[in-house]
Amino acid sequence: MAKKQKLSKGQARRIRANHQKRLQRAKESSADTQTSEFDSDNLGAQEPGVVVSRFGQHADIETPDGDVLRCNIRRTVTSLVCGDEVLFRRANVSDGDIAGVVELVEERRSQLTRPDFYDGVKVVAANIDQILMVSAVVPEFSTQIIDRYIVACEDMGIAPVLLLNKVDMLEDEDRDMFMAILAEYHELGYDIHLVSSHSGEGMDNLKAELVDKNSIFVGQSGVGKSSLVNSLLPDAEILTQEVSSNSGLGQHTTTVSRLHHLPSGGNLIDSPGIREFGLWHLEPERVAWCFKEFRQFLGGCKFRDCKHLDDPGCLLREAVENGDIAEFRFDNYHRIIESMADGRAGARNPRV
């Protein structure tokens, strides 16, 4: 008997992709079957609502009266995330846990996106006013991660707010070091908050920042996002996880994005932890523009194709030498550009 030929990586990837497509079609067909049961006189008039959570082909929709109903999602609704404003139809007679059907998503005022190797640019949240970027003293403080989030915020036109969490663990000399770094961001006009959900430091100022706004917390796992949410919303019962003593890394604790109402009247979306925030879907020129202090120098370099490294007549390099641009921000810019090339290569050749 001839030996069975081993599949190439490309063949295995195509087989798996086709299998996933068949599974997805089966799920959509099942969802359509459920939805069709509501396509008669069993559906009421269209009502407005807000998505508070999304579960596969279902979503929890909150009505203006505060009721939360689990609904099917029409196949014509191609994207639905926390914060979306929708029109849905309530079922006169519910089918198990399903109480209605989402039929239309209203135009978004804003949205946070991140690239995905398989899904392209993926929407994370909608209709948000500000993004609270959480860093912490442990497991690791990284200005590169901060600048990645800032680039995303600038690209989407959403205000970023920087939070340094777990400051109760800082010694005085360490606090001075962190303050010197954060001062660079403050000079650029970004709001900065030093907070601790353990000691309560800075929490009152943070609560004031959230009043009457739709906000989302982002940051690497282990920086204390869920602990902060628990402090802001003690009844939310968000799970928390200590940083691993072996690896020093945080563990993913939140598995599904969910919108919570704050006592102040604003809303907060708690989302799954993101270790990296890829930017490979952006052009290098766009990334440079997203560094606010670069803008006045862009387009003025001696050469049009200036890479802003050691190119003669580079205005960005001169600005760094003159102290007009922080050297660590300039270095982070180049790290982001390098990672974008790696990300695009990964997008072309995703892991099997």
Rank of each mutant, 00 (worst) to 15 (best):
M1G: 15
A2P: 10
K3P: 01
Q5D: 06
G10Q: 14
R13G: 10
R13S: 13
R14Y: 11
R16S: 09
L23E: 14
K27F: 08
S29K: 07
S30P: 00
D32G: 09
T35F: 05
T35D: 13
S36L: 06
E37P: 01
E37R: 12
D39P: 01
D39V: 01
D41F: 02
Q46I: 01
E47R: 10
V51K: 02
V51C: 03
V51F: 04
H58R: 10
A59T: 00
D60F: 01
D60N: 04
V68S: 02
L69N: 10
N72W: 07
I73S: 09
S79L: 09
D84K: 12
V86G: 12
V86C: 12
F88N: 11
R89Q: 14
A91M: 09
N92H: 15
D95K: 13
D97Y: 14
I98C: 12
V101W: 07
V102H: 04
L104A: 07
R109F: 05
R109N: 14
D116E: 03
D116H: 05
F117M: 02
G120H: 02
K122A: 04
V124Y: 00
A125P: 03
A126H: 06
D129G: 14
I131M: 13
V138H: 15
P139Y: 07
S142C: 11
Q144K: 08
Q144W: 11
D147N: 13
V151H: 02
A152T: 11
A152S: 15
M156P: 01
M156L: 05
G157T: 12
G157L: 00
P160H: 05
D168H: 06
M169N: 07
L170S: 10
F178R: 10
Y185E: 01
H186F: 04
L188M: 12
G200I: 03
G202I: 12
N205I: 00
L206F: 08
L210G: 10
I216V: 15
V218Y: 09
G219M: 08
S221D: 00
G222A: 14
G224T: 11
K225F: 01
S226K: 13
S226E: 08
N230D: 06
L232I: 00
L233R: 02
A236H: 02
I238M: 15
E242R: 15
E242Q: 14
V243S: 03
G250A: 10
G250E: 06
T253W: 09
T254R: 06
T255P: 08
H261S: 14
H261E: 09
P263K: 10
S264I: 08
G265C: 05
D270T: 14
G273A: 12
F277R: 00
F277D: 07
F277S: 07
W280E: 03
H281P: 04
H281C: 03
E285R: 14
E285S: 15
W289K: 07
W289G: 01
F291T: 03
K292V: 13
C301S: 08
F303G: 09
C306Y: 01
D311W: 12
P312C: 07
L315Q: 05
L316D: 06
R317K: 12
V320G: 13
G323L: 08
A326R: 08
E327P: 00
N332V: 11
I336E: 04
S339P: 01
S339E: 15
M340D: 11
M340I: 10
A341W: 09
A341H: 06
G343M: 00
G343K: 04
A347D: 01
N349H: 08
N349T: 08
